[in-house]
Design a binder for these strands. Structure first.
Length: 678
DNA sequence: ACTGACTGCGCC
DNA sequence: AAACGGCGCAGTCAGT
């Protein structure tokens, strides 16, 4: 007879959650541990006691345990991280499956235990931890004022309150035997058990089980962290500050009145006024002053002051008439306009040129280096969090945000901050190739569109030939292939055009916006749209259906069994976009799931369609093959390809133009070697 | 003192 | 009738 499975829920009371990885107080981080089994709660201040129970259990669960409780036990109580994670079920992840997140334009869906308990209809416990921490701060303030009187007593109290401005900074000072703390913990355990019982039906759903695994994988990356090259970060911060200080001095001379004490002087009203006056003084006509569309303030955006074009999103009021109700109404619609940058308008005015350059230097100051440096621990490691789940089920690494560090131009320097975790390792990254496009092909099953992704074909080149090419080019392409034909006829610019248009069109961009964004001539864009409609009829039909479905407020199945909430008012654009984004996310997270644990432990982060790893240098080829084979998949007869970068001493080096993304070449050679050896 | 809106800029 | 989607962070400002 098999023994009854032990199912144990647990929760911790700790010091400030923000300091999980940077704890340096004399008091223990973990204040109180609690677990619940078959409705019976237990509490202890000895984490080892909890660990013994958890290790003996068959299933463990808790709320947000992937991101918090399990790493806390690993960091502060010597727990075996992988052993616990392998059998852990996070009710927060289950709750996300039960009630998907909403788009930003709709009421937010919260996933704290209280909110989840309410939604699934069980009793919740209000969040009392903040109150208890606040009570502790008050006690400490009283203690500090003990024996003092009058002003001195007040000052002592104020000092304590300032020290614990964030009351959670005093959470670790709460006595573990405080009856209120114990009661609170027990309440959470009971509530969590009830929530788990409501949600454990998800353990029978493949997609939910996959999602649990996805979040185990993502949070492993957070737990293991990224190494930051501190000297580079510090140097960049200093460089930025020096450069901006110099530009501020020069611009202040030309535009008197720019505030000296503001962190971003051109974001202040006086600064904007001074800048505008300065421009007028050197000959800029008032009607040429660039303005932000909503408030009409002077725009100091890089593009607005550039010598190129500037794309602004403006909201236009349109008078509409409802034939049914016979009422006219005003509708606001978004439109994109392409305007000329200020430097483009005054090419021969050196003063305007200089002022614009200086302003761009000042307002474009990158704070990314400082942001990352500020969150880097004394061990040079940074543990970003996994941000809130997005409607498309995409996730971001935040605090600091790693998802949006620069990739092009000078921004690429930002990636040089991220270096391998250990000596002897190098950085590897791997990207899905045109993930969103392939998702659209797979979902629509448009035979013509699917053909773009067969074999070694270059989708953008194919589209360029099919939609923008001449008959002559198309005939040649039929002989030698699209890419080769474009090169032979010296028409590679068509590929760039197709690529530029294609990105937006997948998300529902219209003709006018495409012209505004790309700067391409109207006739080319219109031709593209016309040809696309003719060539990919099935895709268009699918797109229309996706829009219609999104108007209901829900996309019931993204193709992988997951539903998405959407905003009916934005269905036309949001519907197809969400399918594409979520599908790409499913493919990449599936790829991660395919990796063996040892490779998963090398992962640093996932950036939507890219994975980044820190791998032993001497195993680069082997790991590259595993990563590539893990990510590659054929889904609904569409092949999802990926490439692998060259090794980099830092993340930025993986994108080195000279080295390029030439892994395939190495991979083929590697396979040939293997075949030869066999 | 805090909050939310707005701006600007970065990513996929 | 026409419409590119999804984000996070820092700084400023206005309102409470």
């Amino acid at each position: 007879m098999t023994r009854k499975k032990r199912i144990v829920g647990f929760d911790l009371e700790t010091g400030s959650a923000k300091r999980l990885y940077t704890w340096n107080e004399p008091e223990p981080y973990i204040v109180l541990c609690g677990w619940i089994e078959d409705g019976v709660t237990h509490v202890t201040n000895d984490p080892a006691e909890l660990l013994e129970v958890l290790m003996a259990a068959d299933i463990i669960y808790g709320h947000n345990i992937y991101a918090f409780d399990i790493p806390a036990l690993a960091v502060h109580a010597g727990a075996n991280y992988e052993a616990l994670m392998a059998k852990a079920y996070d009710t927060m992840v289950l709750a996300q499956e039960e009630h998907p997140p909403a788009p930003k334009t709709m009421p937010v869906v919260l996933y704290n235990l209280q909110a989840v308990a309410e939604r699934v209809g069980v009793e919740g416990k209000t969040d009392e931890s903040k109150r208890l921490a606040g009570k502790k701060v008050a006690e400490l303030a009283e203690a500090a004022a003990e024996g003092l009187t009058g002003r001195e007593a007040q000052a002592a109290k104020r000092a304590v309150k300032a020290k614990y401005k964030d009351v959670y900074d005093a959470a670790h000072l709460i006595d573990w035997w405080d009856p209120e703390l114990i009661e609170y913990l027990e309440g959470d355990l009971v509530s969590n058990q009830n929530v788990f019982r409501k949600l454990w039906k998800h353990l029978n759903r493949g997609v939910s089980r996959d999602e649990l695994e996805n979040f185990r994988n993502l949070n492993r990356m957070v737990y293991l962290g990224c190494r930051i090259h501190r000297p580079t970060a510090e140097l960049r911060v200093a460089e930025e500050n020096a450069k901006v200080a110099e530009a501020r001095m020069q611009l202040s001379d030309m535009c008197p009145g720019i505030p000296e004490d503001a962190e971003s002087p051109l974001a202040t009203n006086p600064g904007k006024a001074a800048f505008e006056a300065g421009l007028i003084a050197v000959g800029v006509k008032p009607e040429h002053i660039p303005r932000t569309p909503n408030t009409g303030k002077v725009s100091t955006a890089k593009d607005a002051l550039s010598s190129g074009d500037w794309v602004v999103t403006v909201e236009k009021e349109q008078k509409r008439f409802d034939a049914r109700t016979k009422e006219s109404y005003i509708q606001i619609r978004k439109a994109r306009e392409r305007r000329q940058g200020l430097r483009q308008l005054y090419p021969d005015n050196p003063k305007v040129q200089e002022m614009c350059e200086l302003a761009t230097t000042i307002s474009g100051k990158s704070r990314k280096f400082a942001e990352i440096l500020g969150k880097t621990g004394p061990d040079d490691m940074v543990h970003s969090k996994i941000g809130n789940l997005q409607v498309s089920r995409r996730v971001a690494f935040i605090e600091p945000s790693i998802t949006n560090v620069g990739k092009r131009g000078v921004g690429l320097q930002q990636r040089s901050l991220i270096v391998p975790r250990k000596p002897g390792e190098v950085i590897m990254c791997s990207d899905l190739s045109q993930g969103d496009m392939r998702i659209m092909a797979a979902l629509s099953q448009d035979p013509e569109y699917m053909k773009l992704f067969v074999g070694d074909r270059d989708a953008h080149a194919e589209v360029a030939v099919a939609l923008l090419g001449t008959k002559e080019l198309q005939e040649l392409a039929a002989q030698v292939g699209a890419l080769e034909a474009l090169m032979q006829m010296n028409m590679m610019y068509l590929r760039d055009q197709a690529k530029a248009i294609g990105h937006g069109v997948n998300y529902g961009m219209g003709v006018d916006s495409t012209i505004a964004n790309t700067g391409l001539p109207r006739e080319i864009v219109e031709r593209y749209f016309r040809m696309r409609a003719q060539t990919y009829r099935v895709l268009n039909r699918w797109t229309d259906e996706a829009r219609k479905e999104a108007e209901s407020g829900w996309i019931l199945d993204n193709g992988f069994g997951r539903s998405m909430r959407c905003d009916p008012l934005q269905a036309h654009t949001q519907g197809p976009a969400l399918y594409g984004q979520s599908g790409t996310r499913e493919i990449i997270m599936r790829g991660v799931r395919q990796m063996p644990l040892s490779v998963k432990q090398m992962l640093l982060m996932v950036v939507h369609d890219e994975v980044v790893l820190s791998v032993p240098r001497e195993r680069y080829e082997e790991i590259a093959m595993i990563v590539q084979e893990s990510l590659r998949v054929t889904w609904r007869d569409v092949f999802f390809d990926c490439d692998v970068s060259n090794p980099g001493e830092n993340w930025g080096e993986c994108y080195d133009k000279d080295k390029g993304k030439v892994w395939q070449k190495h991979y083929k050679a590697y396979q040939e070697n293997l075949a030869m050896a066999a």
